[in-house]
Write a protein that binds this DNA or RNA. Structure first.
Lengths: 259, 259
DNA sequence: CGGTTGCTTGAGATCCATCAATAGGAGTGG
DNA sequence: CCACTCCTATTGATGGATCTCAAGCAACCG
């Protein structure tokens, strides 16, 4: 069954109509700019060889000097930070196609850490190569700025959730957002998707205790709008879930940066 | 009395030793790159004429198509977002020297709003001019990427506060951060500074109710580490306040991006 | 099988929100 | 100079959302 989000198919439909092995980075960036075939092969050529990382492993630790941006090809990862009292806060969630650091700004040392949540296949991208790709094509530049725009907007909306949404609203909002993001890279089937994040990690992501995550998920299940069973998330009423959690897709800028 | 944060004086001390009318943007960017006199006049030349904005006025409303980045010269402003149920969350706080949007990524429409908190003098910067300044000098490019790095790190640390810090910790952390940021642009005298944000706005910033902000401020006052009276914030024990609120200055990258 | 990891449930405590009222201070007009 | 208003800060009382502690259960895996 095809997803209903036809608005996103503008640039990508000719590819999506067949089985598609396109790299998730390209899938996503096609929403940000009208990449040519040439642009896409440039982007593919600058990736370092993919490597596999086990679940719950640090990809970049706080304090180190990073040399390349981790790009997720398969699996889920996160950016997190740990307080002096041991509490962990997950700042961003990364899915296939995501660059784990903003392109163009590698600091002298990491002020946070990046870790995998599931088994992950990732290709590091060296900054110099990314920057030369940017200068080689205005469409690549546009696409990468769009990606940066969207990922900062995602973080901001996350901040709004922590500040002003209740536990069930936070969960509902997260699942609405993931529905769109995963759909962009072809990982939604029907109205559901694989959601391999544990309840403890959801707690660290949403600023809640694991116990409360569990109870709030039960409450969401009781509303009938959605349910999370095992690693499978099912949305029964997308519109209702969006209303419940004050979700407005605008911040994901599906129209492209300068469209 | 000079501030104690001598680490920051590396690039700027020749200027700070005299009364200094330097534009706050330059003051701040000097921490990010070794700007030449030429670079600084390029930066000054791309600013549109300054204009005055009243307190509590929107500078850029959600939904509009922005054409220039607001740059704060004097006064305080914020980025905020409003939920469908009317709740407001302040996402970022802007002080003199701050660009209210990341350089390089102007979207088709604003997914949030920018508003003043006090009377503000601001100079809009048009994106084309900023981009041409970036290509004209690698030091300007470095400085602006550093600024973007720092401002996203500030937002992330804010997110950590909302997720994992208690009310008093959030307030303490905010005041430690502001102490550093204001010091960079010369707005700290002794161990205190002017802090014109109302308690209601602090609530919207930190995800708390106004009442609880008030009580938590009283608790901080009782600790003796700091106090907020009128519009004046006084820090009596910076080290203690940092410990209390798990503040680690690393995320503000005072060493520059590529130092 | 025993160990591990993730999920679930109950009970009690805590942090923080809400509601409601009061007080102070700055500006304004008479 | 006073009366008035608005905005901000303060205080008390109560309830609710969420946390912590603690225990049990289910699935998986070597």
């Amino acid at each position: 069954m095809r997803s209903r989000l036809n608005v996103y198919y503008r640039f990508a439909k000719e590819v999506w109509s067949t089985i598609d092995m396109t790299h998730p980075l390209l899938r996503k960036l096609r929403f940000g700019a009208r990449l040519t075939t040439e642009d896409e092969s440039v982007l593919m050529s600058i990736l370092d060889p993919a490597r596999t990382v086990s679940p719950r492993e640090d990809v970049a630790e706080e304090g180190i000097r990073p040399h390349a941006l981790p790009l997720i090809v398969e699996g889920w990862a996160c950016r997190y930070s740990t307080l002096a009292n041991g509490q962990r806060q997950i700042i961003s969630l990364f899915i296939p196609g995501d660059l784990c650091e903003p392109f163009g700004m590698l600091p002298r040392f990491m002020d946070h850490s990046v870790a995998t949540l599931t088994p992950v296949i990732m290709s590091p991208v060296r900054v110099e190569r990314l920057k030369s790709a940017v200068t080689s094509s205005p469409r690549i530049e546009e696409a990468l700025w769009w990606d940066l725009l969207v990922s900062t907007a995602i973080d901001r909306e996350h901040l709004v959730s922590l500040g002003r949404r209740t536990a069930t609203e936070r969960l509902g909002h997260l699942f609405c957002e993931l529905h769109l993001r995963l759909d962009m890279v072809g990982l939604v089937d029907g109205m559901g998707y694989e959601m391999p994040v544990t309840q403890a990690d959801l707690g660290d992501l949403l600023g809640l205790s694991m116990v409360h995550v569990n109870r709030s998920l039960q409450e969401l299940r009781r509303t009938g709008l959605m349910s999370l069973r095992g690693r499978r998330l099912t949305i029964n009423d997308l519109h209702g879930l969006r209303e419940l959690s004050f979700f407005d897709e605008g911040y994901l800028h599906p129209e492209g940066a300068n469209a």
